[in-house]
């Protein structure tokens, strides 16, 4: 393991910024999120996970798929290629990295590959950061994650008091370490302080939940919990793992425009409404059920992992306290043959 003095962090960030497009967690415009590193004026924020997840870097809220022109027999379609320098994501927490692996499953690992996502993802170097404390809404441990490290990172940073301990998990991570060494920023003589286990205010039991939910599609629970939901997009938009999107038009004028893709939410009425007006998920019960079933039952069935990583963002911001941890408890309480 290599060590970095915490006071030298900004030198490291400066070096990283020279290697690619560097994103860091920061406070910006009154909210914490990942922003392009802009030197000293960037208010780097490393306390807990950010309010807005880093999903937006790899899977932007809105992006153009292609531009087009029409009119008098002339029709052209111009795909958009997102040429950019390689990405470096600094300070990614275990929950958010796990969520990125969920996005990978969806966008990269199937029969069809999303090129726009692939291009960003494949050029991205992920520098993970261990959590020094669990936030009030965190429950990643319950979701089977280790808040101190995630193997899918290129470089893992451990938070040790005055030092960061650095460990490479990939070639790219090793290359980064070499580069930082060349800049004389690392030393081998740090202390690998034993990190006390994190204290989680929130704990849930997940065992067997996928199997149990398989039989709970028609359970009255959904009606009960859904009434208070506002069907807003907060939970799904803040979630680092929610991947649903919409494709729609953006007209510049009568003859040209672009096809855009933007985040969508299973909570919205239009999500499943068909052109003729039929909507298989007409109300709150169906939509709330879909959200939790997708996260805890369908996604695990399809991809072998939960689509919830315990980041706690939806808990923190849901205006009516519809908490996924509570849902998991309620599901657990349901009699097995009910």
């Amino acid at each position: 393991m290599m060590f970095l003095e915490k006071g030298d962090l900004h030198f490291v960030l400066d070096v990283l910024a020279g290697l690619g497009k560097l994103y860091v967690p920061a406070e910006s415009n009154g909210i914490t999120r990942f922003v392009p590193y802009g030197g000293e004026k960037t208010q780097v924020w490393l306390q807990t996970n950010t309010a807005i997840s880093p999903k937006e870097i790899l899977f932007p809220a809105t992006e153009t798929l292609y531009r087009y022109e029409t009119g008098r027999g002339k029709e052209t379609v111009k795909p958009v290629a997102d040429h950019h320098a390689p990405l470096i994501l600094f300070g990614i927490r275990s929950c958010d990295l796990q969520a990125i692996t969920c996005l990978d499953d969806v966008f990269l690992d199937g029969e069809f590959v999303d090129e726009l996502y692939r291009e960003r993802r494949e050029t991205a170097t992920i520098i993970a950061l261990s959590c020094a404390k669990a936030g009030p809404h965190c429950f990643c441990q319950s979701m089977g994650l280790d808040p101190l490290a995630h193997r899918q990172s290129d470089l893992q940073m451990y938070d040790y008091d005055q030092y960061y301990g650095l460990e490479a998990n990939s070639d790219r991570g090793r290359l980064l370490l070499e580069t930082l060494e060349k800049h004389d920023l690392l030393s081998v003589s740090g202390r690998e302080n034993p990190v006390p286990a994190l204290e989680f205010a929130l704990e849930v039991e997940t065992e067997g939940i996928t199997e149990k939910l398989t039989g709970m599609f028609e359970h009255p629970l959904w009606e009960e919990v859904a009434s208070k939901c506002l069907n807003c997009g907060i939970c799904t938009y803040l979630c680092p793992a929610c991947h649903c999107f919409d494709i729609s038009e953006k007209l510049d004028n009568a003859h040209c425009g672009s096809k855009i893709r933007c985040w969508d939410s299973c909570m919205f009425s239009g999500y499943t409404r068909m052109a003729g007006g039929h909507n298989p998920r007409p109300g709150k019960r169906e939509r709330v059920r879909e959200r939790f079933m997708h996260k805890l039952c369908y996604f695990p069935q399809r991809y072998g992992k939960y689509l919830c990583t315990g980041c706690g963002r939806c808990l923190a911001k849901c205006p009516v306290g519809l908490e996924i941890t509570k849902i998991m408890e309620l599901v657990k309480e349901v009699e097995n043959d009910a």
């Binding site: 795909p79 040429h83 170097t125």
Partner: peptide
């Protein structure tokens, strides 16, 4: 050296991106 990555061009996107 660090990136070692090929950046996709417009044609790649057309060829690969299934949404176009």
């Amino acid at each position: 050296a660090f990136s070692g990555q090929r950046l996709a061009g417009v044609d790649d996107v057309r060829r690969i991106n299934p949404l176009v």
